[in-house]
Design a protein around this nucleic acid. Structure first.
Length: 844
RNA sequence: GGGCGAAUGGCGGAACUGGUAGACGCGCACGACUCAAAAUCGUGUUUCGCAAGAAGUGAGAGUUCGAUUCUCUCUUCGCCCACCA
């Protein structure tokens, strides 16, 4: 008996695939295509277990589809622009480009060791000018279509680092690097007009049948469509303000109106620019940051103006106008009408400033005397104290009726509002795709002509400056267009732009004229199965969908509206956490197991505190390096284990025991393989029975069904069952053709999971023409079945029978059965329920 | 505060449209081999009970001959969003 040498076998097959270009994808109109894509990685330097899981899941599918006869496109690339490179370069005085390229090389080697079926000839990297050149062209294309524009917008500003921070980089109101309190600052930024497609992006979700509902609802909520009404309020006071528009979803509560609140950025604020108190108030508001959860919990504050707003349905009523910190400028009109009785936020505000709280809706189970007291009542009911609206049912007909009245009086109209905001793509960063725009001395933007693309990033520049390093590159900034001296835009594009179209590029990775070739995308797109983490459920997936909308806008040549036909979101990889007695995190390789307990390796008298399993992170040190795992146990073991323990959609817990047992199982399969080879060579003259063929068929059906449903964990269970069956059954003597036929089918069905091992075994039985084995339905039928006997719904016995037995016959058998008989003595049988070949329930 | 989802042995998880709960794995126990250990192989492993048997899928109700699966109420946990007018 030889030991399975995974090192030589895995290297052998990886070299074989590379030499034979086994996974090269070529257009072939006579074959059905399958585009299998996993979210491409950021080249941080090393692959992590999350990558191993993501790419293994994708590889199982790609290999399965390929065996089924599909023409599979399974590419890989690098999302290689972004802050980590810039930060690493800053800290270690390196060139981001060099840093990134080295990382890519390293990670590519690691990925290859996993034995992925990737067409590496299509590899792309977004920081490569051959890639971002086309991205700049797309930017200009959208600019021409007026889907890109510039506007002033608030950003999170780190005053110490002099840079803009993404929302995720603001932690408790402070910059993640500097720790400085983040300010709100107005900057002129480039925007993609994603909100123009709100309705289309919403409608598109309906057709995405192969997307998880969870992701669809997340996108739906993010787009946030709401139905309501815009109301024009007349304003009285000593300022030249005549009207203020508000958006509301509850126009029916208009008689409960008691204040009008404006955003501090509302145009009315211009009349208060010299008002000291207002400026102090505005300052106060900006301190709360832009996106903090604290805002929601935070106190509502207001600044009272001397303006009065008139209730359009009750002109005698005039209420004060405030500026308030809770009103957002970029939703609705930056102004809200306050109805404290039926909105908790308005209620809090009214309590604080002692404003009227007028109840205008009573719950169905309360009478006219109902008054809102301790908290707002936002629920359904009947309108009261509302003059002409009294008696209407809220919300069933009250909202529409009110809108009708307002429309008739021309003081309001029906409106649909979306929460989705335009996508700000400007980043004050060096390591990103330059925006192909230049400005004249008046700040007027000019697009860089296509012939001058790409706008290349200058290399080897000093990054250790405050703010955006590109601002200091005066030589680079100067550009002459049509004889005009201009200065380049120094902002670079958000890296999400790079990942919004990379799947198109994989179809035509070498096309030079444009981002893709029409023939290529016509054949390969859309992506049939996209696989990645849920963390991208909103932004990346929505931006990609937007990009397709934008490209097809006013363009008859491009009609892909949804880039990803199928989406699968996999769970995270978790590991137990460990701490030493001094409360410091410990990594798994600092720990030793002694008698089932965990001790410090360097001091074995000290016990280790074992914490809950959490997603692998550097800060908690509960990471495991895939490189070591592959070196110690092999890629097939790693693949087997990462798939075995949990359904792919859920989190999986990595454990030492788990990977070891997977490793051992492959050794067992190898021993079984030798046993089978021996049996094949024995040349038995006759088959002992046909159990082995029946088993193979049943097994193939299970594996097939589980592959189709992403139940990859169950396939591993099937594998174990297969092992124990064959291990016992094989010795009963089968002829060579029977053994080879069945074993070959089993091995082919194993290749998606254990590609190296299965291919090695297949070569040993000299298998040719490998394609996915179909199961024979007629072989699935059972000759003997087990029927459950229940008395009053409780299981009391199990009877073996031939299929298609009728109720009477079955009852004849069981009424004499020892186990059942005793329950039936001296009992009247009221009823019998028989589910054919499955179950007989006797009611007594 | 809003939305979505989940809850099954010591653990990860099975159970297709309601029909044998706990497949498969880990862990554990016992046994075989061994001077011994590791490795390997075998047996067992939901709980209570010597057994017959009984209970049992977060809690409580309901529908049903029959509920892990369907309905309602509640609890806990997870994820997403967050002053959205």
């Amino acid at each position: 008996m030889s030991r399975y040498n995974f090192k030589s076998v895995e290297t052998k097959w990886q070299n074989y695939w590379e030499k034979n270009k086994s996974f090269k994808a070529k257009i072939n109109p006579s074959k059905k295509k399958f585009y299998c894509l996993e979210m491409f990685p950021y080249p941080s330097g090393k692959i992590h277990m999350g990558h191993v899981r993501n790419y293994t899941i994708g590889d199982v599918l790609a290999r399965y589809k390929s065996l089924q006869g599909y023409n599979v496109l399974h590419p890989m690339g690098w999302d290689s622009f972004g802050m980590p490179a810039e930060n690493a370069a800053k800290q270690n005085n390196l060139d981001p480009k060099k840093w990134t390229e080295e990382n890519i090389l390293n990670m590519k080697t690691q990925l290859k060791k996993l034995g992925l079926s990737i067409d590496w000839e299509r590899e792309i990297s977004t920081c490569n000018k051959d890639y971002y050149k086309h991205q700049q062209a797309f930017f200009l294309e959208l600019y021409k279509k007026k889907l890109v524009y510039r506007k002033e917008n608030y950003v999170n500003w780190d005053p110490v680092d002099e840079t803009v921070l993404a929302n995720e980089q603001v932690i408790n109101g402070k910059g993640w690097r500097s720790g400085a309190v983040v300010e709100r600052k107005k900057l002129s930024q480039w925007f993609f007009n994603i909100s123009k497609f709100s309705q289309k992006l919403l409608d598109g979700l309906e057709k995405l049948d192969n997307w998880p509902n969870k992701v669809k609802t997340m996108q739906k909520n993010w787009i946030g469509k709401s139905f309501g009404c815009e109301i024009d309020f007349k304003i009285e006071g000593n300022l030249p303000v005549k009207n203020i528009k508000c958006f509301t979803t509850r126009p029916d509560t208009l008689f409960g109106f008691s204040f009008l609140a404006l955003s501090v950025d509302h145009e009315v604020s211009k009349y208060f620019e010299d008002n000291k108190d207002f400026l102090i108030f505005k300052e106060e508001c900006s301190k709360t940051g832009t996106t903090e959860e604290a805002i929601a919990v935070g106190e509502k504050i207001g600044f009272k103006t001397n303006l009065l707003a008139v209730n359009p349905l009750n002109p005698k009523q005039k209420v004060p106008v405030y500026f308030a910190n809770f009103v957002l400028m970029d939703y609705g009109f930056g102004a809200v009408f306050g109805c404290p009785a039926h909105d908790q936020r308005d209620f809090d505000f009214a309590k604080k400033y002692d404003l009227e709280i007028k109840t205008v809706v009573r719950p169905h189970d309360k009478d006219e005397k109902f008054r809102v007291d301790k908290e707002a009542y936002p629920g359904p009911g009947i309108l009261i104290n509302s003059n002409i609206l009294n008696g209407l049912r809220a919300p069933e007909n009250s909202i529409l009726e009110t809108i009708k009245i307002l429309e008739k009086k021309k003081i309001g109209k029906k409106q649909i509002n979306f929460r989705l905001k335009d996508w700000g793509v400007s980043r004050q960063r060096y390591w990103g795709c330059p925006i192909p725009i230049a400005y004249d001395e008046n700040g007027k933007p000019y697009p860089i002509p296509r012939s001058m693309l790409p706008v290349e990033l200058p290399e080897n520049i000093d990054l250790n400056v405050k703010g955006n390093p590109l601002d200091n590159q005066n030589n680079w900034r100067e550009v002459t267009i049509n004889g005009k001296k201009l200065l380049r835009e120094t902002d670079t594009l958000d890296t999400f732009v790079c990942s919004s179209w990379y799947y198109l590029r994989f179809c035509s990775p070498n096309e030079t004229e444009y981002g893709f070739k029409k023939d290529d995308i016509d054949y390969w797109m859309p992506v049939d199965q996209y696989i990645g983490g849920v963390e991208h459920a909103i932004l990346h997936l929505l931006y990609s969908r937007f990009f397709m909308q934008a490209l097809s806008h006013d363009n008859d040549n491009f009609n892909i509206l949804e880039p990803f036909d199928g989406l699968f979101t996999q769970g995270m990889v978790c590991h137990e956490t460990y701490k030493d007695p001094d409360d410091n995190w410990l990594s798994p390789d600092e720990i030793e197991n002694i008698d089932g307990k965990k001790y410090l390796k360097r001091d074995k008298t000290k016990a280790v505190l074992v914490g809950p399993s959490e997603s692998m992170s550097k800060s908690k040190k509960n990471t495991v390096d895939p490189e070591n795992i592959i070196a110690d146990y092999g890629a097939d073991s790693a693949r087997l284990f990462i798939l075995s323990d949990s359904p792919p959609a859920k989190d999986v817990q990595w454990s030492e025991e788990g990977i070891i047992s997977s490793f051992k199982f492959i050794q067992k399969l190898w021993k079984l393989n030798e046993k089978i080879l021996k049996e094949i060579n024995k040349g038995h003259k006759q088959d002992f029975d046909n159990e082995i063929s029946k088993f193979t068929n049943k097994y193939l059906k299970k594996v097939h069904d589980n592959l189709e449903n992403f139940s990859y964990n169950k396939i591993i269970a099937n594998l174990y069952e297969m092992y124990s069956f064959l291990n016992k059954q094989i010795e009963k003597a089968y002829t060579k053709p029977t053994l080879v036929e069945n074993y070959q089918k089993i091995l082919v069905a194993m290749t998606p999971i254990l590609p190296h091992f299965a291919n090695e075994c297949l070569s040993l039985i000299e298998a040719k023409n490998l394609s996915w084995p179909k199961y024979d339905v007629s072989m699935l039928k059972e000759e003997a079945i087990k029927i459950v006997i229940q008395i009053n719904g409780k299981k009391r016995g199990l009877v073996q029978s031939k299929p298609n037995i009728n109720e009477e016959k079955l009852f004849e058998i069981i009424k004499n059965d020892e186990k059942i008989k005793k329950y039936l003595i001296q009992k009247n049988i009221k009823k019998k329920i028989y589910i054919k070949d499955k179950l007989l329930n006797i009611i007594i």
